[in-house]
Design a protein around this nucleic acid. Structure first.
Length: 248
DNA sequence: GCGACAG
DNA sequence: ATCTTGTCGC
């Protein structure tokens, strides 16, 4: 474990940012540098960055570290958590939290502008460099094809994917009851993700790619990291930490 | 125009 | 997201 208290003031060199091909996170979420963008600016920024998303296969067998990301809301505060697990053993090897005041309202479709800034800070505080990031929410399965997972992936230029608990855009037939079965999540004439059964007889999760991964690889990784519960372990841990960390 | 709408 | 008790089942 490498968690540092969320209040520490000293920015440490990040093993994740910057990286070649990455975008300046500040410019890509807070375009005017100071205050948050307007809703119109935020949407325009998504349209501007969406073309950078790339789908590509990932050798899931060789993924070593998987990060789970989540944010909780408490008493007007927002707590972002990043937890890193060994893909092999699913044991937690690193974690970090950050508590901040919300600086952007909850607007469906503009999630990233609310949750990404604190999540990026939490990621910066990690002492490890995850191979893949699993977000609580969506990636391509988004009105402008640029959900939180895509946004994070493009900013970091790293593989990311999103796992949602309820559908946002698109429609999917109920997948078979058996764990592992899935059905395409279709929006208009595009396949934007999958409804995936991670537990037999339990309602499916909705998987979509973020960046630098494809749907097959994302599906495989989600199944691999969710052997016992509906929600993948990395996200489960991040969810718990974001709510329980007293230091946050 | 109306309803729906990730967390 | 959060507000909230008990209950059925593996």
């Amino acid at each position: 474990m490498n968690a540092r208290p969320a209040g520490s003031e000293q920015p440490l060199p990040s093993p994740v940012r910057p990286s070649a091909g990455a975008i300046d996170p500040a410019a890509a979420t807070w375009p005017r540098g100071g205050g948050p963008p307007s809703v119109e600016e935020a949407r325009a920024l998504q349209d501007l960055l969406a073309p950078r998303v790339r789908a590509q296969p990932v050798d899931v067998e060789r993924v070593g570290l998987v990060a789970g990301l989540d944010v909780s809301y408490t008493e007007g505060r927002l707590v972002a958590a990043a937890v890193v697990l060994s893909a092999e053993t699913l044991e937690v090897v690193d974690a970090a939290t950050v508590a901040t005041a919300p600086r952007f309202p909850y607007v469906p479709g503009l999630f990233a502008f609310r949750e990404l800034p604190p999540l990026l800070d939490a990621i910066d505080r990690l002492g490890t460099a995850p191979d893949v990031f699993v977000c609580d929410g969506f990636g391509l399965a988004h009105p402008r094809r640029f959900g939180l997972a895509c946004h994070l992936g493009v900013l970091l230029d790293r593989p990311t994917l999103g796992v949602g608990k309820t559908p946002f855009v698109g429609r999917a037939e109920p997948p078979g009851q058996q764990r592992g079965s899935w059905s395409p999540l279709v929006d208009g004439d595009e396949v934007v993700g999958r409804a995936l059964r991670t537990r037999t007889g339990v309602k499916p999760v909705y998987v979509s790619i973020g960046h630098r991964i494809d749907l097959d690889s994302a599906t495989e990784l989600v199944l691999r990291t969710a052997p016992n519960y509906r929600i993948p372990e990395p996200v489960r841990h991040a969810d718990r930490l974001s709510r329980d960390d007293p230091g946050a």
